[in-house]
Every structure is written in structure tokens, then in C-alpha cells.
Design a protein around this nucleic acid. Sequence first.
DNA 1: GCCCAGGAGTGTG
DNA 2: CACACTCATGGG
Length: 291
Amino acid sequence: MSRTMSFSIEIEPLDLDLTLGCGQTFRWVKGVDGSWRGPLGKRLITLRPKRKGLEVEVKGRAGGVVKEAVAEYLRAKDDMRSIHRHLSNDPVLADGIASMHGLRIVKMDEWECLASYVLATYANIPRITRMISALSERYGDEIADGVHAFPTIDQLRAASRSALRKCGLGYRADFIHSLCNDVDERRLKSLTKLNYENLREELKELPGVGDKVADCVCLFGFGRLEAFPIDVWIERALKRLYGKQGSYSSLRRFASERFGKYAGYAQEYLYYNERGPASRGECRFSEERGQ
DNA sequence: GCCCAGGAGTGTG
DNA sequence: CACACTCATGGG
């Protein structure tokens, strides 16, 4: 069988439970020992938290590229201190931000992110995870025993609508089917050079991509930290904490003015806080200090 | 049975 | 611009 090798990498601060378990990304599984296992590209990776940073275990051959891939995926270059300093100007965030110090925005593969968030419309996280797992097992390459990579655009393009429905996608099957025919790897990569606003508008041209999905893909797939996806949870948080409600574009403008270039991190803190992981609701932000 | 879920598309006023 | 409606499915 394939061998296993491991190395360590320093990313600090980093909380894997917050980062991989908060619903940004859907393919990681937590082990009983506190490690996290999931496919990264074409390799099965296991991440174990250490005192400073983490240990990475790789199934199969692992060149230096794997270390770089992990660092990119976990956005090792983000300076969390300056991000927190920036966001702490907001008294509402400053209050509860400390407990989420190690939550990092993830940098997913562009295609995986786009398809995942098209699937995520009007579904909850357990179901999103199931849909993605089903697609991967049926159409993606097997990279280790029983573990499959997310299918490429070409692999999914070969799937019929009815076959996609059998993976539990529901009406999303049609979106995915159209998406595969409207997009290829080259076009996706070419979007990288666009600024946030233009990228957002280009993504919204794609089937199944509206305001919210476009912002998720900007943030988690293209690394645009100024993006601020607004779903039902964020809507509730903005109303509860800031007394704000209105159209998507008006809420987006509010977030942009309030949180600036790190709005994406603010969104993740608000999302996690509002939703709670079936709850550790002790330390919710207080609404008393808004404005 | 009910209600909800990291919404989008389409049609109408 | 704002709504209203529909889309398909699983979990609580």
C-alpha cells in the first residue's frame, strides 16, 4: 500500500475545529483524537494540532508542494493580529473576537468552491456535506481507500441530470449540469485577475450563482477578504447586533463601510457566533454595544 | 404533519 | 426597486 509521510508547519494562531468545522468547507472529518482528515487536491491529508502550528500527515508521495498547498489552503500568510486589530475597531466584534482567534478563512480550489456553494443553496450543512460526498464518491478520483477527490469539471460534465439527482441534489442538479457546460478550468483561472467587484459580476452570470453564492466564491474560492456573504444567519446577526435590515446590496454596503478590507473575517465571526455549533452559545456577542 | 436550511430564477406591480 | 412564488429534499 501507499506509504505515509509527515511534516510540521507553523501557522499561528490556528484552531482547526473552528476553521474546518464551521461550515466554510465541507470535506473534512474530525477524528476521535482531535485530528482532521480530508482530501486536499489529489492527496489525503491528516492535520494534527500541535503547540505551535500543526503536524501534517500525507498518504502517498508528498513533495514540497504539499506543504505549500497546506499553507495556502489555511492562508498562512494572513496576519491575524493586524486583522483582529482592524476589526476590533468595531465594539460589537471586539467583545467576542478573542475566543475565535484561530478561525481562519480557507482558500479552497475555485471550482470546488463554486460547485459547493451552488449546491449549498437552501440546504443545511449536513445535507451539503452529503451531496458533496455523494458526488465525489461517484465521479471523483479515489485518492485513498474509500476517499475520493472532488470531481473535476470534466468529470461532472459527463453526468446526466438524472444521475446527479440520484446523488440527492434535487433541483440543484440542473444548476450543476448547466454550470459544467458554461465553465472550464481555463475560464475559471482567468477570473483570478479581476478585482472583487468585477469578479463578483462575472460569477453572477453563471447558473445558480446569485448575490450570496457569488460572495462565498469570491471569499472562499478566490481569497477576496473584502467579500461579505449574507445568508439567513448573517441577516439575523446584522439585525440583532446592529439593528440593520434591508436588501442584499444595502447590507453589503453597510458591511463594507463598517468592516472594510477584512469584511470576510468579520462575516465568519458573525456567522459562527449567530449559528453556534449546535451551541456553545455562552459567548455570543452582545447587542447592547452596537452603533 | 410542521418548519427550516450558508438561495436563485422568474414573473409581476 | 420590491415582493411572491416555485424549485427538491432531508433533518429536527
